[in-house]
Computed example of a mutant assay.
Amino acid sequence: MSITRLSDLADKAACPRLVVKVGSSLLVGPEGVRRSWLGELVEELAAARARGQDVIVVSSGAIALGAARLGLEKGGRGSLADAQAAAAVGQIALSSLWAEFFGTQGYPAAQLLLTLEDLEDRRRYLNATATLTRLLDAGAVPVINENDSVATQEIRFGDNDRLAARVAQAARASAVLLLSDVDGLYDRDPRDPAARLLPLVEGVTPEIHAMASGTSGSGMGSGGMTSKLQAAQIAELAGISLAIINGTYATPIARALATGTGTLFLPRRKAAARKAWLGGRLRLKGTLRVDPGAEAALTRGSSLLAKGIVGVEGSFERGDPVAIAGAEGRIVAHGLAEYDSRECARIMGHHTSAHADLLGYAPRSAVVHRDQLVLK
């Protein structure tokens, strides 16, 4: 059974494993932790567990909690050092909150702090998968946050929407539920009286991206609708549905599912596990720019040959992940390079028959083989 509507997120058969993302502005208000709201949300998640669904929580809020306790300006986001210090204090408070509230429902909470590298590196990604699986099998509720106390601008996710999607991939979840401060995706700025809520989206296209805003309305988080659409793209590679609902209400999940108020993104395809991991990577080592002919061949399932490459950007080694960009600069695929950047620059535009003379050794079958490539 597959997910076809918002209410299916409460169906064990359609959605046996659910990842729920909670943002900072929902968890922490001007007066501190919204304990009443959090208690009702945990009751909803406990009800999901009771009906046989696995639940994983991706929770923001550590920086906001720590900044309040340390008295830091700008919510702890005035500098990277402030954010890291606030997170170090706030992570203790955040994990204690979730442990307390899930404990009252009879479920142990488990904390996992992740950095981008934990899910970008294939071996560490598989280790995270194993840990999540064991925790769920043991009856715990994993509560995950980005490890802001050690993450830097170069390695951090930057928002927990995409983190939630990557966690869902690693956990082999059925769906991701993003609790936001709006009802879902609108066809234009939701402040426009003519704006229309989109209840169902089948695949995130450039037209869908054009409807989004990249700013966070609350000022507390670091995401926005753009990051939510990027999360939907990451999820769909693994055949995972993603929903956006308004989390500002009491019992937000029950309200959204009962009224059908929200936006449900259905995946158009499902890549194999390794390709889903590759396609969801947020940090790449370089870019290969290709001509229209090569771009068309990629969409038909072909490997990337040097003949179709018109530019090489960045410094990368053989086996590193790279982006493949079309003539207009749009990223059309991710892949693992069979040559380093210097070799790619040497053979680009040349037919395979010339590679041996250019490189001094027998060429490989492709610059990026189709088995190590996933379309975006």
Rank of each mutant, 00 (worst) to 15 (best):
76 G>R: 13
187 D>E: 12
2 S>Q: 06
151 A>C: 12
106 G>F: 02
312 V>L: 14
178 L>W: 02
220 M>Y: 15
89 V>I: 09
34 R>G: 13
37 W>S: 05
309 I>N: 13
221 G>R: 12
164 A>W: 13
176 V>R: 04
360 G>Q: 01
136 L>E: 15
57 V>I: 15
101 F>T: 14
103 G>I: 02
107 Y>V: 15
22 V>H: 02
76 G>I: 10
305 L>C: 09
169 Q>T: 15
65 L>P: 14
375 L>P: 08
360 G>Y: 01
3 I>C: 00
42 V>N: 05
235 A>R: 05
282 L>Y: 07
8 D>A: 01
154 E>L: 09
162 R>G: 13
40 E>G: 01
177 L>M: 00
192 D>E: 12
39 G>Y: 02
178 L>P: 02
339 Y>T: 04
219 G>R: 12
200 L>E: 11
217 G>V: 04
240 I>R: 00
21 K>M: 06
62 A>E: 00
132 L>A: 05
362 A>H: 08
360 G>E: 00
9 L>E: 03
288 L>N: 03
295 E>H: 06
284 L>C: 02
193 P>F: 07
58 V>A: 12
169 Q>S: 13
343 E>S: 04
35 R>E: 15
190 P>D: 06
152 T>A: 04
165 A>P: 14
158 G>F: 10
133 T>A: 15
14 A>V: 03
63 I>H: 14
16 P>I: 06
97 L>N: 12
175 A>Q: 00
273 A>C: 08
375 L>A: 10
128 A>G: 04
217 G>D: 04
266 L>P: 04
342 R>H: 11
167 V>A: 05
203 G>L: 08
324 I>S: 03
170 A>M: 10
94 L>V: 07
205 T>Q: 01
162 R>Q: 15
142 P>M: 00
155 I>H: 11
261 T>F: 05
208 I>N: 01
242 L>V: 08
313 E>A: 13
18 L>S: 09
9 L>F: 06
134 R>V: 02
337 A>Q: 11
156 R>K: 15
281 R>L: 15
314 G>H: 07
330 R>P: 02
29 G>D: 14
268 R>Y: 11
211 M>Q: 10
292 P>W: 13
105 Q>K: 15
272 A>T: 14
175 A>G: 03
276 A>W: 09
125 Y>W: 01
340 D>M: 12
374 V>C: 03
258 A>N: 08
150 V>Y: 10
267 P>H: 09
56 I>M: 00
202 E>P: 04
270 K>T: 15
43 E>I: 01
274 R>W: 14
301 G>C: 06
188 R>C: 02
69 R>T: 05
374 V>H: 03
342 R>S: 11
77 R>T: 08
52 G>L: 14
7 S>K: 06
225 M>N: 04
295 E>K: 09
253 I>E: 08
195 A>I: 10
285 K>A: 09
271 A>G: 06
205 T>G: 00
297 A>D: 01
59 S>G: 09
362 A>M: 06
18 L>P: 10
70 L>P: 09
224 G>N: 00
81 A>T: 01
366 A>S: 02
347 I>W: 01
276 A>T: 08
85 A>D: 02
156 R>Y: 11
51 R>F: 08
216 S>H: 15
313 E>W: 10
152 T>C: 02
184 G>V: 09
194 A>M: 00
156 R>W: 11
191 R>D: 13
361 Y>K: 06
221 G>S: 11
199 P>L: 03
44 E>T: 05
131 T>W: 07
93 A>L: 10
233 Q>R: 15
